[in-house]
Nucleic acid binder design. Sequence first.
RNA 1: UCCCUCGUAGCUCAAUUGGUAGAGCGGGCGGCUGUUAACCGCCAGGUCACUGGUUCAAGUCCAGUCGGGGGAGCCA
Length: 470
Amino acid sequence: MIDVTVAQLFRDSAAYLGKSVRLKGWVRTRRDSKAGISFIQLSDGSCFDSAQVVVANTVANYASEIQRLTASCAVIAEGEVVASQGKGQSVELQASKVEVVGWVEDPDSYPIQPKPHSFEYLREVAHLRPRTNTFGAIGRVRHCLAMAVHQFFNDRGFCWIHTPIITGNDCEGAGQMFRVSTLDLANIPKTPEGKVDFSQDFFGREAHLTVSGQLNVETWCAALSKVYTFGPTFRAENSNTSRHLSEFWMIEPEIAFASLVEDAQLAEDLLKFMFKALLNERGDDLKFFAERIDKECITRLEKLVEAPFERMNYTDGIAHLEAAIAKGHKFEYPVSWGTDLQSEHERYLTEQLVGRPVILMNYPKDIKAFYMRMNDDGKTVAAMDILAPGIGEIVGGSQREERLDMLDKRIDEMKLDRNAYWWYRDLRRYGTVPHAGFGLGFERAIVYATGMANIRDVIPFARTPKSCEF
RNA sequence: UCCCUCGUAGCUCAAUUGGUAGAGCGGGCGGCUGUUAACCGCCAGGUCACUGGUUCAAGUCCAGUCGGGGGAGCCA
């Protein structure tokens, strides 16, 4: 008797023919034949497909238990692997014994049924949705992409740096932060001036959840040369869209002795590596997404992997948009050099003009962060965004300002406090070096790969404003 | 936060100008079949999101509240 997963059974079906094996999993459906046979679709999550377990009425608990099995009952099935007499599967398990490990109480109201459910509904039963086809596939795709990220960087000599989740910087500059505190909310200590006395808080100062590991990872970049972070990130913005989460995962590489050109190439190489791995390893799940979620998803990935990304200066992007307007294309918002692109503008460039991902580079300094490197024209900074059809911005990055005088100038211009950045500024005082990096939204990459419409459905437990039930 | 939209059985949805609340799936029982989202018959299952109002009469009209979704902004 050998323990096998469904994935192993189908991958090496010829080798298992005639062998006695044990499968463990959950019932998807049960079909009865009153001639004395029941068919159980058994899923263990190891691959997209479920296995067919054939149970004859000669099995001891056939009438007492097998015929009472409903969706999601947990069972252990033992028997011989035989060639299937039916269509739909190459092999099946001819059961000699089926042990019911866990029943479903009140099958009448069990929330997951063998039929399509709306994703909105499934979010309300997030603890049970992994048992559906779609979310099982999401789980495996997510894992595959995460492993590909680590393999990509490891192959290229990067070190994975575990940047902190809790940060004492209230100056990371990427948006609203969640406060971390152990103060008694009903009895908050105050200073003589009437302000909250954070010196009595856990860390003796204000603390928040990180909105980016970039500033921290730059310190390790200035010693290990090639580094990256891959971890959770938190934004307390009141964003209610299909592209935003309050807690999401981000990949942030940082490379020393590098410019924006190498940075953009790294981002392109990473995305292509991730999606190649997905095409190679999760064909079963992608096939499902192509059939049920988004017809284009496989061809879109194949196209992305093959063709070079389009590179375009911000200034040229504006020119393209103005040309489109001249030809009669209507945008809701006006286009002019110096303003940030609206969603509709990004969509036009990547979806209509190019039809592939676009790397937009060298943005006006006034719409970008203080740490981005000033270009020689004095008007633009060495920033880049990668815009992807269907989701918009998937990567945001830049070459960092490595010259202390220029960095200080930008900190002052943006009315930030130099002292708050003392250790970040130290990096420019002690062996500074040109360096660059970017942030890749992990869930946005999954959305792109699968064609799932809402980012809340590509993370196991979505955190969004007014939503933290599970 | 702003704009739009939706809320009816366990789930997916229907219910005409305001006039007794319906189907499919799922569940139970029975039938049939090496079945494939199986099929056929019967049965059970509803505070029509909540609160108030208009009306002889409200799932339907009005107001408010709560919740879901889409779009925008912010960004990844």
